[in-house]
Design a protein around this nucleic acid. Sequence first.
DNA 1: GCCAATCGATCAACTAGTAGAATGGCTCAT
DNA 2: ATGAGCCATTCTACTAGTTGATCGATTGGC
Lengths: 194, 194
Amino acid sequence: MTVELSPRATELAEHARQLLAAGGYNGFSYADLSEKVGIGKASIHHHFPSKADLVLTVVQRHRQQSVEGLAAMQQHLGDDPQAQLSAYVDYWARCIRDGSSTMCICAMLAAEAPMIPPEIAAEVRGYFQDLTQWLAAVISQGQAKAQFKPEANAPVEALALMSTVHGAMLTARALGDPDAFQTIVRAAIHRLAA
Amino acid sequence: MTVELSPRATELAEHARQLLAAGGYNGFSYADLSEKVGIGKASIHHHFPSKADLVLTVVQRHRQQSVEGLAAMQQHLGDDPQAQLSAYVDYWARCIRDGSSTMCICAMLAAEAPMIPPEIAAEVRGYFQDLTQWLAAVISQGQAKAQFKPEANAPVEALALMSTVHGAMLTARALGDPDAFQTIVRAAIHRLAA
DNA sequence: GCCAATCGATCAACTAGTAGAATGGCTCAT
DNA sequence: ATGAGCCATTCTACTAGTTGATCGATTGGC
């Protein structure tokens, strides 16, 4: 299940992730990646035979790291659901503020879903399902501890919160105001609190 | 301010809007549009000298129609803020369900903001500002009539609701489930109600 | 006879991907 | 230990197709 990557392949995947976050699937070329990494275009094809292979690997890595990161949060803050949600959104707030990742690549690719290779769209769907499941579990847990008093049931609240987070990334980009993200998601979490 | 378009230019802009909604700025070409409309590629350049001109016109039209549509809602349902919000999200729910527009093109272009011509990004920003302003006014109005009891102030609630709506479009696409949109946005509006 | 609209032909630049040849580190039998 | 062979990695050069855009000619309505 876990994808094993050579150092060079890892470097390529990491730079591809940045390009993907900036412009989406059709927003970057092998030439762009070639220039960023300082390697011949043909060499990229040795590590990733096709562009679909490359992007699929990037999405798989992002999904896997996400699952691991969320699990780590649950382990560290297992008894405090509200702190878990805050840690989740603060992670993205930090990424957006420091510019290391101004957008989740799966939100990016979700927008392009009708036009990208189906196997990539399937992996993006998996990411959304993973995230929804985690959020629903945390919200349900917080409900049991009377930390949250959600208006709807946990799965729906999870979908709504996830949508708000991804939408806030769009809003921050559209307005050219990175701080807007934090303003929006903080309000969304605060609204859940009892 | 209002853009005057010939019938053919209107037809081109309309088909371009659909292609834009499906794949974004880099997700369609003049050849695609040429085939859809049944016109030579060179003829498109007669109506819209460059791709940036074409897309800018499409976005300007979308923004203008949006402003007019929202104003019409306010006129019809001026005394019922909650009905206004419902009408707004129901409009999109209908578009997504019948497939006539499965995504707001400004949400699409917001994701690509770092990579598209600046004048288009500026127009997208204008759309987001218009929408935020309208939502804030409606929420503020509903607050005055005790229909809503927002947790945050109206401008922040407006940003959050807009983000949820756009994020719900992403979620529906990622999951391949058009109904998810309505589920999410209905919950978001219900949460505002007193 | 003017002028908007359309066309086919063509452009240079870019796209993902391929072919074939170097490079150099690794193992392994001698 | 040494040389032979293997294999991953990289390169230059190239392909065939697509991109947005231009040119000049043709059409047809006013």
